[in-house]
C-alpha cells in the first residue's frame, strides 16, 4: 500500500498548513492570486533571492512535508508541465535584447524544468534519487507512477508532487498551448508516500495514464475493474471540466478546475482535496479523472483503509 503521510499545497486556495482543505475551498474568480506562506520562514535569504514563484512554492511545500516527517526522503519525484516559465521568459528577453556579449546567467540557470527538484535536493541536503517528469496534463500522474514504483523497489519515504506557474505571457499562448476556459493559476502540491501506515489512513491505491483514449468510459471502468471496483463504489469523483463517465446519485462529484484554476499539473491539488475528503468523512473511495487535454487521460484512485 502507498500511504499518504503528509501534504503541502500552495495554491490560490487557503491550502497551506490547513487540516482539511475541503472546509476552506471557494470557487475561484477571474482575478484570484496565490495565497502564499511567508517564504522567509522556510528558505534562507541567500537562496530565496534567486527563486521565482514556482521555485518558492515547490521548495517551501517540500520543506513543509519534510518538517512533518521524521525520516529523510529516500526518493523525490516531481512533475511539471511547463517548468520554470518566468525565468524562461526572462532569459528569452535577456538574449533577444542583449547589446553586449555579457549576459546575466541566473535566469538561464533557474529555467530548466528540474530546477524545482534540484532546489529541493539542495534545500533539504538530500542526496537521493531525484526525478523530473514533464508530460503536459499528466505530468503529476507520471511523477506519481514513478513514486509508487520507488516504493515497490523498497523505498520507505518518497516525496512526490508537482508545481507549475502562471505568467501573463501564457495567456497569449492560449489556446495553442493550453485550453482557455478557466483562469490561469499557479500551484504546487507535494505528498509524502510510504508503504507503512503508522498514523495515515488514506492511500494511493492505483494510478494510470492513457494516451489517445478512444473510449474514456471504458478505460476508467477497466481501471476500476483491475482494482475489483466499479463506478458504483466511487463516493467522490473529481474531474476536469467535463465528467466523462455516468455516476450514480450517491457519488459526490467535483470539478476541481473550479478550485485549482488552470495549470496542467492541477490534478495534484485534486489529490489533496480527495485525500482530505476521505480522511474527514466516512467515504472510502475517491477517483480523480484528469482529461484536461482530450488526448491524455490520467486516472488516480485513493482509498481509505
Amino acid at each position: 500500500m502507498y500511504y499518504i503521510h503528509s501534504i503541502a499545497s500552495i495554491s490560490h486556495q487557503d491550502s497551506f498548513n490547513v487540516s482539511n482543505v475541503c472546509s476552506k475551498l471557494e470557487k475561484l474568480g477571474q482575478e484570484s492570486e496565490v495565497i502564499a506562506p511567508n517564504y522567509k520562514e522556510y528558505v534562507p535569504p541567500a537562496s530565496l533571492r534567486r527563486l521565482s514563484p514556482v521555485l518558492r512554492m515547490g521548495l517551501t511545500a517540500s520543506i513543509e512535508c519534510q518538517n512533518n516527517t521524521e525520516k529523510e526522503f529516500d526518493a523525490i519525484s516531481v512533475g511539471t508541465a511547463l517548468g520554470c516559465l518566468r525565468d524562461t521568459e526572462k532569459f528569452l528577453v535577456t538574449f533577444h535584447t542583449a547589446t553586449s556579449d555579457f549576459l546575466s546567467p541566473t535566469a538561464f540557470i533557474q529555467s530548466t524544468h528540474n530546477t524545482i527538484g534540484g532546489q529541493i535536493s539542495l534545500g533539504l541536503k538530500n542526496h537521493a534519487y531525484n526525478m523530473t517528469h514533464t508530460q503536459n496534463n499528466v505530468s503529476f500522474e507520471v511523477a506519481l507512477m514513478d513514486a509508487l514504483m520507488c516504493i515497490d523497489e523498497g523505498k520507505k519515504q518518497v516525496l512526490v508532487g508537482s508545481a507549475d506557474e502562471q505568467i501573463p505571457f501564457l495567456e497569449l499562448m492560449q489556446p495553442n498551448l493550453i485550453p482557455d476556459n478557466y483562469p490561469l493559476t499557479s500551484g504546487a502540491s507535494f505528498f509524502v508516500i510510504s508503504p507503512e501506515a503508522s498514523s495515515a489512513s488514506v492511500c494511493v491505491q492505483a494510478v494510470a495514464v492513457r494516451f489517445n483514449p478512444t473510449d474514456k468510459t471504458g478505460e476508467i471502468e477497466q481501471f476500476l475493474a483491475n482494482q475489483q471496483l466499479t463506478l458504483n463504489d466511487i463516493e467522490l469523483a473529481l474531474y476536469a471540466d467535463q465528467l466523462p463517465v455516468e455516476t450514480n446519485e450517491k457519488t459526490e462529484t467535483l470539478n476541481f478546475l473550479e478550485y485549482s484554476g488552470l495549470h496542467y499539473s492541477a490534478s495534484a491539488f485534486a489529490m489533496h482535496i480527495a485525500h482530505d475528503s476521505l480522511k474527514h468523512s466516512d467515504k472510502r473511495y475517491a477517483l480523480i479523472i484528469n482529461d484536461m487535454c482530450s488526448d491524455k487521460l490520467g486516472i488516480t484512485l485513493l482509498s481509505k483503509q
Binding site: A46, S100, P105
Partner: peptide, 23 residues
Amino acid sequence: GLGLDSIDALEFIVLLEQNYNIK
C-alpha cells in the same frame, strides 16, 4: 561574508561590463 557563490561572480562580471564597460 555575504555568502555569494560562483553564479554571483558571473553576475559581477555582467555588472562591471554594463555599468563600467570593463570586460
